[in-house]
């Protein structure tokens, strides 16, 4: 059973390298996303890395919603800006988000059906 501390260290080291590479080459990909890609490759190559990360990563993902609360509270600090443009912001955010999800999901399902791409591994 690998220790939680070494799991945290590994996560942070990946993120650190991601940030450095992203900034060094001024990539459009942010550091954590770059580190995520590197981590997937690492996990495919090493069972030990997978076992090391699993407990910490599961814990963080189970509580992912919590991590958005501090930014969300920022909305309260911006209340006057938001209410000054309430109609434009409200209609734009609601309209575009719902439309984008529908268009994305419909496109996926349509293309998958057209190419006979079915998901055999779907758990019941």
């Amino acid at each position: 059973m690998p220790s939680v501390v070494s799991g945290i260290i590994t996560l942070l080291l990946f993120q650190l390298c991601g940030e450095v590479v992203s900034r060094m080459f001024s990539l459009p990909l942010p550091g954590p996303v770059l580190a995520m890609v590197a981590m997937v490759i690492g996990m495919a190559l090493s069972e030990r890395l997978l076992a090391l990360i699993r407990p910490v990563a599961s814990f963080l993902l189970q509580n992912l919603s919590l991590l958005f609360v501090p930014v969300g509270v920022g909305a309260v600090a911006r209340l006057s800006d938001l209410s000054a443009h309430a109609l434009a912001i409200g209609v734009s955010l609601i309209g575009s988000t719902l439309l984008a999800i529908c268009v994305g999901a419909l496109t996926f399902e349509y293309v998958a059906r057209l190419t006979g791409n079915v998901d055999e591994e779907e758990e019941a």
Binding site: F14, M36, L67, F68, V69
Partner: peptide
């Protein structure tokens, strides 16, 4: 709240787990 906010980065890296 910054301590909670900071964990967004490591959580993004953690998305490698379901992806893998």
């Amino acid at each position: 709240a910054q301590f909670v906010h900071f964990m967004l980065g490591p959580a993004t890296v953690s998305l490698a787990l379901p992806l893998h």
